[in-house]
Simulated assay, not measured.
Amino acid sequence: MSTVTANMSMSLDGFVNHPTDGVDTLFRWYSRGEVVTGTDGDHDWEFKTDASEAQDLQGAKDSIGAIVYGRRSFDAAEGWHGTHPLGVPVVVLTHSAPRDWEYAGRSVHFVTEGGIAAAIARGRELGGGRTVVIGSADLTQQALNEGLLDELTVDLVAAMLGAGTRFFDNLKGAPYELEQTSVRPGNGVTHLAYRVVKP
Rank of each mutant, 00 (worst) to 15 (best):
F167C: 07
A51W: 05
R124Q: 13
V90P: 09
D13M: 13
A77W: 06
V196E: 01
K48Q: 02
Q58G: 03
G33E: 00
G38A: 03
N7W: 03
G128I: 06
H95I: 01
K172G: 10
G59R: 14
S73M: 11
G105R: 08
L144P: 14
A143Y: 00
Q141M: 08
I134V: 15
M8P: 13
N145G: 13
H109D: 03
H191K: 11
P89R: 08
Y176L: 10
I67A: 13
V36D: 00
L139M: 07
T20A: 15
G173D: 00
T37H: 05
M160C: 13
D75C: 07
L86R: 11
G186F: 04
K48L: 01
L156R: 12
L152Y: 07
T83P: 02
F27Q: 06
S136G: 15
H84Y: 10
N145H: 12
G22Y: 05
L126N: 11
S182H: 12
D13I: 13
L149P: 01
L192G: 13
L152Q: 09
A54K: 08
G128S: 09
R106T: 05
T94H: 04
E78N: 10
A77Y: 02
P175S: 02
D42L: 05
T39I: 02
V108P: 03
G162P: 14
G135R: 14
A104T: 05
L152T: 06
T190V: 10
F47C: 05
R28A: 05
R166C: 07
A51Q: 09
T25H: 09
E46F: 05
F15S: 12
G79W: 00
